[in-house]
Design a protein around this nucleic acid. Structure first.
Length: 454
DNA sequence: TCTGGGGTCCTAGGACCC
DNA sequence: TCTGGGGTCCTAGGACCC
C-alpha cells in the first residue's frame, strides 16, 4: 500500500499578505522612514495605507489627512507610487515561486500558492515551506508579511489574517474548528456586511435572551456547522461554496497565469474642484476613454458595448450604454459615439466630480475583418497610427500624444493624481522605468492629437 | 467609512420563442 | 381568444473583493 499523505493537508494552500503594504514599500524604498509614522494616499486626501507606528497612534484607513496631521504633527504623508509597489509585488511573487509554479497573483499585496505535492521536490514539510517563504520575504524585501497555511483558499485567508503583522499561522484540517469558533462570521472572506447581518438575523436571534447576550456575534463555526441543506435553502451559490470551504472542502481553484481575458475594462477619475464646465467634463471623459483603450490594446482586445457616466457632487450617477455592430479598439470611435449622446446625460448647472467609462463585451476579434466596404483600409491606417502612439507613449510617457478632445483634461489638470492604478501591476518593467522621465517629456512636447477628432 | 479606483460573479425578471 | 409549460437570452442591480 502506498503511504497516503496524513489527512491534515489534503491540499496545502498558502496565502501571503503584505503588512501595510504601500507604507511598507515606502519604508523599504527609503530606510530613513523606518520606525516613523508613514501614511500613503496624499493624492486622495485620505489615508490608503499606514505604517504600524501610525496605526498604533490611532490612524485608520480612509481617515482624513487633515485629521491625521492634527493627531500626529510629525507624520510623513506620501502620494501613492504604484510603480514601486508593483516592483515589490513582483519580487514577492518570485520568492513564493521558488516553492511552486502554482501561484495565483491575487492582488498587488497578496498571493495564493498551492504547495500540494511539493514536499518531496522541496525536501521539506509544508510547515517548513511556509516558514521559509516568510523568512525569505521578510529578509529580502525589508518588510513583513503575514502568512497562512491551510487546506483551501478561504481557510488560508483565515490563517494569514489570524495574526498580523508578521504572523505565521498554520491550520491543519483537524484544527479548523478551534479557529472558526473564535472568528466572527463577518471576518470570513466573501461574507460582507449584508450577508453577515442576514446570518445574524437567522442564527443570532435564536439565542436572544441567552446567557451570552444579544450583542454577541455569530461565529464562523456556528455558520460552518449548519446543515448544507439549510444553507442551500437560505443562501445563494457563493455562500454555499464558502460554507463548503469552511468545512474543509477544496472548492476554489487557484487562478494561475497572467490575466488577459477581462470581462470589462473601466476607467474613472475624480477631479477636484468639481466642475460645471461642459467642455472640461467632456475632456475628462475623453481622457478616461483614451486610458481604457490603451489598456484594451495592451491586451489585444476589442469592445462591442460600452457605458459612460457622470457623477455629480451629490454622488448621483447619470449615464447610458452604447452598443455597436462591430467590435472596436479605437478611442476616437468611442469618443465620437459618446459625443453624440452626451447631451442626454449632461445637465446645465449640474456640478460634476467624476466621469467614467466601462468597456464591455470584450473579444480579440477586430472589426475590420467584418468590413466589406473598403473602410478596412482606413481602420488599418488608424491602427497603425495608434501603434505609433503607443510606442511614443512607451518611450516618453502616457499621454505624450493624446486626443484633441482630451486637451483640457491633460493640459489643465485640475488635480494631478498618482498615476496608474492598482491593476496595472503587470506592466513591463521597461515601460515602468520610462514612466518617470515620461512625466517631464509630456511637459516638453505634449502634442494634442487634434487631427484625429472632428 | 461621508465616499478612490478597478474588478468579478450571481440572481431575478422581462422579452421572446416554441 | 384563452390557457399551459418550458426554454433561452439579456439586462439591471446587488454583493463582495483588494
Amino acid at each position: 500500500m502506498p503511504i497516503l499523505s496524513h489527512h491534515s493537508f489534503p491540499r496545502a494552500i498558502l496565502h501571503v499578505d503584505g503588512d501595510s503594504f504601500f507604507a511598507s514599500c515606502e519604508v523599504a524604498k527609503n530606510p530613513a522612514l523606518r520606525g516613523k509614522c508613514v501614511v500613503t494616499g496624499k493624492e486622495r486626501g485620505i489615508a490608503s495605507s499606514m505604517s504600524y507606528e501610525a496605526k498604533a497612534r490611532g490612524v485608520t484607513r480612509a481617515m482624513r489627512l487633515s485629521e491625521i496631521r492634527k493627531l500626529i504633527p510629525e507624520v510623513i504623508i506620501l502620494p501613492s507610487d504604484y510603480e514601486t509597489y508593483s516592483l515589490y509585488s513582483q519580487r514577492m511573487y518570485e520568492i513564493v515561486r521558488r516553492y511552486t509554479e502554482d501561484i495565483e497573483e491575487y492582488s498587488i499585496d497578496e498571493c495564493f500558492a498551492d504547495l500540494t505535492g511539493m514536499r518531496r521536490p522541496n525536501k521539506m514539510s509544508y510547515e517548513q515551506m511556509a516558514m521559509k517563504v516568510k523568512h525569505e520575504l521578510d529578509g529580502e524585501l525589508g518588510m513583513t508579511f503575514s502568512v497562512g497555511l491551510s487546506v483551501n483558499k478561504v481557510m488560508a485567508k483565515v490563517a494569514s489574517k489570524w495574526r498580523k503583522p508578521s504572523g505565521l499561522t498554520i491550520i491543519p484540517g483537524y484544527n479548523m474548528h478551534l479557529y472558526l469558533a473564535k472568528l466572527p462570521v463577518e471576518k470570513v472572506w466573501g461574507i460582507g456586511p449584508q450577508t453577515s447581518a442576514y446570518i445574524q438575523k437567522l442564527l443570532g436571534s435564536a439565542r436572544v435572551g441567552s446567557a451570552r447576550g444579544r450583542a454577541e456575534s455569530v461565529t464562523a463555526l456556528e455558520f460552518a456547522t449548519r446543515d448544507p441543506e439549510w444553507v442551500k435553502a437560505h443562501f445563494s451559490k457563493p455562500f454555499q461554496e464558502i460554507h463548503r470551504e469552511l468545512n474543509g472542502s477544496f472548492v476554489y481553484p487557484l487562478v494561475v497565469g497572467e490575466k488577459h481575458d477581462y470581462a470589462s475594462i473601466s476607467k474613472t477619475r475624480t477631479f477636484t474642484p468639481p466642475s460645471k464646465d461642459r467642455e472640461f467634463v467632456f475632456a475628462q471623459l475623453s481622457k478616461n476613454i483614451e486610458n481604457a483603450c490603451i489598456k484594451l490594446r495592451r491586451h489585444g482586445l476589442f469592445t462591442k458595448r460600452f457605458a459612460f457616466f457622470l457623477k455629480t457632487q451629490e454622488f448621483r450617477y447619470a449615464g447610458l450604454e452604447i452598443k455597436l455592430s462591430q467590435a472596436i479598439s479605437v478611442p476616437q470611435e468611442i469618443v465620437r459615439n459618446v459625443r453624440e449622446r452626451f447631451a442626454e446625460v449632461w445637465r446645465d448647472g449640474g456640478l460634476y466630480r467624476a466621469t467614467g467609462i466601462v468597456l464591455m463585451d470584450l473579444s480579440n476579434k477586430n472589426a475590420s475583418t467584418m468590413d466589406l466596404f473598403g473602410d478596412s483600409l482606413k481602420v488599418e491606417k488608424v491602427q497603425a497610427v495608434l501603434s505609433a502612439v503607443d510606442a511614443v507613449d512607451a518611450k516618453f510617457g502616457k499621454h505624450t500624444v493624446f486626443l484633441g478632445s482630451s486637451f483640457r483634461a491633460i493640459k489643465e489638470p485640475a488635480h494631478q493624481d498618482g498615476g496608474f492604478g492598482h491593476n496595472d501591476r503587470g506592466e513591463a518593467s521597461e515601460r515602468r522605468k520610462n514612466l518617470l522621465k515620461g512625466e517631464n517629456a509630456r511637459q516638453r512636447l505634449g502634442l494634442p492629437f487634434l487631427g484625429m477628432v472632428r
